[in-house]
Design a protein around this nucleic acid. Sequence first.
DNA 1: AATGAATGAGCGTTCATTCAT
DNA 2: GATGAATGAACGCTCATTCAT
Lengths: 209, 209, 209, 209
Amino acid sequence: MNKSTSKRKEREKEARREAILNAAARVFSRKSYHEATLDEIAAEAELAKGTLYNYYKDKQDIFFSLIDQGLRKSQQNFETMISMGGGLEDLLTRCFASSLEIVKDHKYLYRLMLTAGAHLNEKVQVEVMENWHNQSVLGAEKLSKAFASMPETSHLAPIERLIGANLVFSAIHSLHHRQMLERDTGNLQEDIKNYVRLIVRALTSEKTT
Amino acid sequence: MNKSTSKRKEREKEARREAILNAAARVFSRKSYHEATLDEIAAEAELAKGTLYNYYKDKQDIFFSLIDQGLRKSQQNFETMISMGGGLEDLLTRCFASSLEIVKDHKYLYRLMLTAGAHLNEKVQVEVMENWHNQSVLGAEKLSKAFASMPETSHLAPIERLIGANLVFSAIHSLHHRQMLERDTGNLQEDIKNYVRLIVRALTSEKTT
Amino acid sequence: MNKSTSKRKEREKEARREAILNAAARVFSRKSYHEATLDEIAAEAELAKGTLYNYYKDKQDIFFSLIDQGLRKSQQNFETMISMGGGLEDLLTRCFASSLEIVKDHKYLYRLMLTAGAHLNEKVQVEVMENWHNQSVLGAEKLSKAFASMPETSHLAPIERLIGANLVFSAIHSLHHRQMLERDTGNLQEDIKNYVRLIVRALTSEKTT
Amino acid sequence: MNKSTSKRKEREKEARREAILNAAARVFSRKSYHEATLDEIAAEAELAKGTLYNYYKDKQDIFFSLIDQGLRKSQQNFETMISMGGGLEDLLTRCFASSLEIVKDHKYLYRLMLTAGAHLNEKVQVEVMENWHNQSVLGAEKLSKAFASMPETSHLAPIERLIGANLVFSAIHSLHHRQMLERDTGNLQEDIKNYVRLIVRALTSEKTT
DNA sequence: AATGAATGAGCGTTCATTCAT
DNA sequence: GATGAATGAACGCTCATTCAT
């Protein structure tokens, strides 16, 4: 009566935390941090406002948890993509494609991250962006390592591999932006091909200097 | 009290608009949109709060004007850089350097743009980001044209020139981010060199596919 | 499950009521009525919050019970002091000393009584203070009776004995206040002596009017 | 246009501060600190809630100002009474009577002072009570000085004069309490006479020790 | 045009109380 | 009887906006 019961409780508690986060995600996808009210989040979660405080310390806590979750998912996705093997072109194409896939599914989240800081004092703001930045840096480092073990790019200097990886992430961010605005996404696939081609060329051509 | 008088009035009015905007810039450079209050902006402008409403419709109006101004300045800067001529490497190096220069001078502005949306409903938010994105797109198009008239890159397909220009802007944005966080800016110059080298290589090497 | 069982239950129930009250006493000794939360009291009593409601109607009920308990203890103490016999001076000295002893042990309780009203509507507030006042009145009456049976003061008019007893209680209250503030308690014993001397003189000297 | 205008503004501002304080007094006379809401105070003052914040920092500020005002008035009253001269009996009678007069006029204020602490953390609480206590101490000291310059009491040891003065204040406080409860105030005048007589006797009879 | 006092809607958070288990 | 998660009413405070002077 204790072990199984307490386990069930544990699970239910976690499920409710998740449910609140999902409700918050839906609200934050429509409204900015300041426009979104706890009343609305509670209503969306079909809970009383006070209940939110049984699961999260305050509004900011909900907000941060949401971003954290998003960053974690995003990072996991990158790692999967990188570890899937294949040639350089395949690898890059996969990174671009999967990244955009994520943004499509969590468009609001990307906006949240982009605009995370606007409502907080500079200290916390920088903290959030640092978190985000770190994810990129980590991602770039991992990608850079992948470059090191691929025949096409193993000859590059470490710094070149890293800068190349950064270029990949920069381009992806740029496409995120564009996708967020929901414009001319028709030739997106084509553009990805071109990005990949240019970056492949940058990384594999003979040195010119 | 006719032509010359009204002209003077016109000028004074414009000057005061400018003064308010400068005050707002100083306040927004310290605080986020929601943290910044009209009281503070008025105090910084050494005006009464009510006076602000003689020059701007509301708080949002001030905020938008500020971003507009920043984007215009930024764009002008790019155009100058592009029109200065010189070889491909010089051009790119200039673009990177001047862009970072701007961010250094108007770090708050970049943050404002980055976080512009966080306090507005999605519609207005997208509007702001569109504005920003358009500037990038326009910039990329101009850079792309510049590529077209340079011996090193004139042989590229238009789409490749455009994607290359986008890569430049993406990398710059990425550096902006990094600079905002004020981390490891020591080897920034070195990194710019590497970015430029890679992009030059991407644009000038023989095709490999 | 008959007599003895129900008696045991009875006792256990009473014991738990007492335990809750003790927990409340500890909490209220640190916090004001409004700052003290039922969560904290429950935690202090090592019970669930809901359990409190099996023993007390609501928060106010706990609070009142605590004050009642304190007043009863205080009164018992006075009665003991009065019934101990001895001369006038001894009696008064004992009253002062023991009263201060009580306050030292239950400083929070005195503060509770002093501030009892601040959180309740006037009606209930008056009720509490009346309770307290009554204790003083009763105490004064008892002391007054003691005066009547003492050789030094038996010659006084009843009203003078009562007023004299009131003076004693007033002075004690005043010392309570002072002790609560924890200031200059160094010469407290000396002051008590002086109070006693003055009051003895008031009660025993020849009439001057 | 400036001097007189700014003076008028000054006066109006002060008048409004006063009006708010009066409104607060009326509300606090009905409700405890926590029950009284700023909405109610604002309504009573016929002002918008926000306006209160143009004149007072927060709720506590209003509350403290009210107490301060009351203590100041009360102290001034005592000083007047003491400085009016006359014999010992007259002086004491005046002190009693005028003090009760004050309480009659500001009954709520006395309750406020009595219960001041109950809603604040201990630090502030002690601060308020200290303020109050200090007033009593100061009053007692002044009264003690008056004793020193009166023929009937100039022969007393300083400590006896001080304790005697304390007795007066203690008795007054006790009567305050009783008056607050609005009970048997019929024979109040009679009791005052008795208090005065006893204290006079304590202070003027031959030493018995 | 400039002022700044007045406004009042709006929101995050607390916590006594309830009730299903 | 015991539990503690859920509830939701309640309130202090902020600040963009208005408007009388």
